[in-house]
Design a protein around this nucleic acid. Structure first.
Length: 306
DNA sequence: TCTCACACCTTTGAAGTGG
DNA sequence: CCACTTCAAAGGTGTGAGA
């Protein structure tokens, strides 16, 4: 399936309705977080969809956890520079607690309710790009997207999804390791921090998700959606109607495919400090792109399904 | 707080059609 | 044989009821 977020940046301009802003939110433009991080060796990583992340961060990003696994939205998409073109690198996205607390949603803000739950050893916490390892020139030649990463709250998950605790705060970290591993670099973007939840708590986050995520298009206001009409009727006071004149229309205008090669991702397990890869099937599905098909280069579905 | 069924959506390859 | 259109399947989305 095509990268659903490929046009979100170009779209970029979520309705900036001041009247709908929560008193506790921060204007996205006022967030000083860096778009590009450069380490001491000169390697730099750019958060490609930074504008979207900033909009979500200004409201307090929430990510849904489900038993079967839910994709992140927005997801992490990077552009790398400064790598040794001939050196082999592995790219891994890990998601780590950003503090040691558990939270609850109280009317309009998050409150600490106690210490964080203990994260059991061996739980899946990282996601390796399936091109890993790959030459620096190839990593730098396109975008590195982790849109297939899924989050779950199921400790028994066997699908390779990242296991998190609901109502805890996390932050993704990009690891760039040379192969063989004699150097490791980690890049973190504070604006990608999020709260893991099983149900959205902040309705502004729901609005942002609906406006930006094409898979949630059915919840946008178009005047002909009986379900949305129902929701509007029932929750007029609590949930202002989603405005869509911008995102959905711009989305149509931006249906041209993203030029850069959008690298697929796959998963791997973390057992203590050892990474055990098991993505043979996905690798077999990661053929070259053909024709006007999407940017994932996936093979027919019946071959991809485990 | 969490799980599940649901309706609606996008994406994609296969099948069908016509030149 | 090729280009184009149509269709169905897979899978992603948030909602809302109920546990």
């Amino acid at each position: 399936m095509e990268d659903p977020c490929a046009v979100e940046d170009e779209k970029g301009s979520l309705t900036n309705d001041p009247s709908s802003a929560s008193p506790t939110t921060t204007p996205a433009s006022a967030i000083p977080f860096p778009t590009t991080v450069t380490n001491f060796t000169g390697v730099s990583v750019t958060l490609e969809n930074n504008s979207v992340w900033k909009q979500f961060y200004s409201c307090g990003t929430e990510m849904i956890l489900t038993k079967q696994g839910r994709r992140m939205f927005p997801y992490c998409r990077y552009r790398l520079a400064g790598l040794d073109p001939e050196c082999q690198y592995s790219l891994v996205l890990s998601i780590v607690p950003s503090d040691k607390y558990r939270y609850r949603w109280s009317t309009s803000k998050w409150e600490v309710t106690g210490p964080a739950e203990h994260q059991a050893q061996g739980l899946i916490r990282a996601f390796s790009h399936h091109y890993s390892p790959c030459k620096g020139s190839e990593w730098m030649g396109g975008l590195v997207s982790f849109y297939k990463l899924k989050l779950t709250n199921n400790p028994q998950d066997q699908e390779g999804h990242i296991v998190l605790h609901s109502m805890h705060r996390y932050i993704p970290r990009l690891h760039c390791d040379t192969c063989p591993r004699w150097e490791s670099m980690t890049f973190t973007f504070p604006q990608t921090e999020f709260m893991a939840v099983t149900t959205y708590q902040n309705f502004r986050i729901t609005q942002l998700k609906i406006n930006h995520n094409p898979f949630a298009k059915g919840f946008r206001e178009d005047g002909n959606n009986p379900r949305l009409n129902r929701v509007t009727t029932v929750t007029t006071e609590a949930k202002p109607v989603v405005k869509t004149n911008t995102p959905s229309s711009v989305l149509k205008q931006n249906e041209s495919k993203e030029g850069a090669v959008d690298l697929m991702v796959t998963f791997f397990y973390v057992f203590t400090s050892d990474f055990v890869t098991h993505y043979d099937k996905l690798l077999s599905c990661a053929g070259p792109k053909t024709g006007t098909s999407g940017s994932t280069g996936r093979k027919p579905r019946h071959q991809c399904n485990p």
